[in-house]
């Protein structure tokens, strides 16, 4: 295994290590088990969405409607639970709802060949306002007591959420690397025409990726919702930008065809830690957004600098 193949992941990991070191020096209690498990739990939903987003970006598309889909799935999960759907059945139901929203995107983008940024921009406003219209902003309350943590209790529930997120990450990572369907995503993202000539059907690959994106968004929404006893109607605002930023900081090329889920994991961890790290380091939260933006740009610049440095060395 050549290390240089992983240079993008490595530069993100180095940035993450630097951040952890800085906050570790400022406040060693950051590394307490309780804090690390809270961080993992709070970022698991973003990670799940970012996994889907990685595949969408790998195939050369983008999805900015995930935040609105997330909200729709959260509220749907709440309504289903309140109307008496047994808790174990919630997951398939919500996955189905998410997958159908994703399938609609996939239909327009994959089958019809419409540009993904416009389709998902339309769905971003559509789902958000449709949800506002139906809920009128009301939260879903009075959920059955076994809704929280699927009725497993806090410790097991937390474990389950992190375990599911990790399993999904590893599963998709393996699929992208080893399965024909996974490799097809890279092929279509690199050059759709070449992929078509090689016997792959780009429309159906793109369609499938969007279905998966929707299903993963649904899963993220449900796993996030069960951490609480009620469901707010405005969940997931700005989630799409968080997920895209995590994917990009993790070294996936926005033009498609290049990137790994390992990088996405590092990217999601890096961006998800900044806010907490600032609080621990005693820095004013006013600067959080500025620092986030700077880190995205710095990750890009580092990437380019490493490239140039390697070029010089080769000469």
């Amino acid at each position: 295994m050549k290390l240089s193949r992983y240079k993008r992941e490595i530069s993100a990991a180095l940035a993450y290590a630097a951040l952890l070191m800085a906050v570790g020096v400022a406040s060693p209690s950051f590394f307490s088990a309780a804090n690390l498990s809270d961080l993992a739990l709070n970022n698991a939903p973003v990670l799940l969405v970012a996994i889907g987003m990685t595949m969408v970006i790998l195939v050369g598309q983008i999805d900015i409607s995930v935040g609105s889909q997330f909200a729709v799935c959260s509220v749907a999960a709440g309504w289903l639970a309140r109307s008496g759907v047994p808790v174990p059945l919630l997951l398939p139901c919500v996955l189905l709802i998410g997958a159908s929203m994703g399938a609609f995107n996939g239909l327009l983008i994959g089958r019809m060949g419409l540009p993904s940024i416009i389709v998902t921009l339309a769905m971003l406003v559509f789902w958000r306002d449709a949800l506002r219209w139906t809920t009128e902003g009301a939260w879903v309350q009075d959920l059955p007591t076994n809704f929280q943590w699927f009725g497993l209790g806090q410790a097991y529930g937390q474990l389950l959420i992190v375990a599911v997120a990790m399993a999904v990450l590893i599963g998709f990572s393996w699929m992208l690397r080893n399965l024909r369907q996974g490799r097809a995503i890279y092929a279509v993202g690199s050059d759709a025409e070449a992929a078509r000539l090689a016997g792959i059907e780009p429309p159906s690959v793109i369609f499938n990726v969007f279905v998966l994106m929707g299903a993963l968004t649904g899963m993220a929404a449900l796993l996030n919702a069960v951490r609480f006893t009620s469901v707010p109607s405005n969940a997931g605002l700005g989630l799409e930008l968080k997920a895209i930023a995590a994917v990009v900081v993790g070294g996936t090329a926005i033009t498609g065809g290049r990137g790994r889920l390992l990088g996405t994991l590092i990217g999601a961890a890096l961006l998800g830690t900044i806010g907490t790290a600032l609080t621990f380091a005693g820095i004013n939260p006013f600067w959080e957004k500025a620092i986030q933006g700077a880190i995205i740009l710095a990750a890009l610049a580092a990437d380019r600098l490493i490239d140039e440095w390697r070029m010089r060395n080769q000469q």
């Binding site: 983008i62 930008l241 895209i244 930023a245 990009v248 926005i254 033009t255 004013n284 006013f286 600067w287 959080e288 957004k289 500025a290 620092i291 986030q292 933006g293 700077a294 995205i296 740009l297 890009l300």
Partner: peptide, 19 residues
């Protein structure tokens, strides 16, 4: 890519204004 650059400055500019 412009999408990524301006995504970064999207956070950066607003963050500077707030800061």
């Amino acid at each position: 890519p412009p999408l990524i650059v301006t995504l970064g400055t999207f956070s950066l500019f607003r963050g500077l204004a707030e800061g």
